[in-house]
Design a binder for these strands. Structure first.
Lengths: 149, 149
DNA sequence: TTAGGTGCAAACTTTTTGCCTCCGA
DNA sequence: TCGGAGGCAAAAAGTTTGCACCTAA
């Protein structure tokens, strides 16, 4: 992927530098979506084996500060990083741990309601709703539920 | 607190035993609500200093398996354990990290919608919605938002 | 030449595992 | 006495920190 000029610009404004590592991490997040730092690291190392996991963490922090990536805790273990472009809602089953993805439109009503009543601006693409999925409640499986990551 | 007879019974049915540690951990979760394993451990150790953190983890697992307690990831770090009796929704601000609690009734519409369309039974009392709270978006603070833990 | 950035190693935090001992049915 | 439980220590997983070196402005 080509060097991200807007990233270079943003960094420069803050007295920071564009580096191959930063580009690679941003690319990896964009490409993988929902990846843990470890997976991002592995992906980056396929191209640049010398890159250290420390750099991954530092860069993810940086990119998050610049609002270019965001992390979510989908339940257990390591957080998962995505870009804003990646839009959908996660339904996490607290029995089987499966994650169902549904379109963000499902939450428009709730989003408006929360903003109106609590001044809370919901981020509909980066949250995890917990409950019990169709398989674990014994309901019929739908197409949407098959989309488990 | 008195020994929980129904817990003793449930355990016995599965060939397990009731122990002081298990009672203490359950009591601690009930009393504290939203406590991390570490806090639960500290609480238990005020009464029984010899209880090891390992036992806390094992017992929380056990109680979760029995559906007596549940854990939620409110964002970062350690999970927080609660009993079912503790009913409310968490709005986690991903800017300031603050947690706003709102009544579970706010999600009835969504709950029905998710069940109908995806067979997903939402657990309205134990989930965290992420977004940006009133303070961080510059809106007027409401009474609900003041309830930050 | 001077900060920013990276790699490396070590520390740290949280959770899990293995093993041995204890104790109640 | 037999298996479930708990304590302890060590390991594992995930993340952070300190420090020396390197390099682009």
């Amino acid at each position: 992927m080509v060097v991200d000029l807007s990233l270079r610009h943003t960094l420069h404004k803050r007295g920071m530098r564009m580096t191959p590592q930063r580009q690679l991490v941003l690319d990896a997040v964009r490409e993988l979506q929902h990846a843990t730092p470890e997976r991002i690291c592995a992906h980056v190392q396929r191209v640049a084996p010398a890159v250290n996991i420390t750099t991954i963490y530092r860069t993810l922090d940086l990119l998050e500060g610049l609002d270019l990536v965001r992390h979510t805790h989908l339940g257990h273990g390591a957080p998962s990083y995505s870009t804003h472009a990646h839009e959908h809602i996660h339904l996490v089953c607290h029995r089987c741990g499966g994650v169902t993805e549904i379109p963000p439109g499902e939450l428009t009503v709730l989003t408006e309601q929360l903003q109106e009543r609590f001044g809370f601006v919901l981020d509909p693409s980066h949250l995890a709703l917990s409950g019990r999925c169709g398989r674990c409640t014994g309901h019929t499986e739908t197409a949407a539920e098959a989309n488990v990551s």
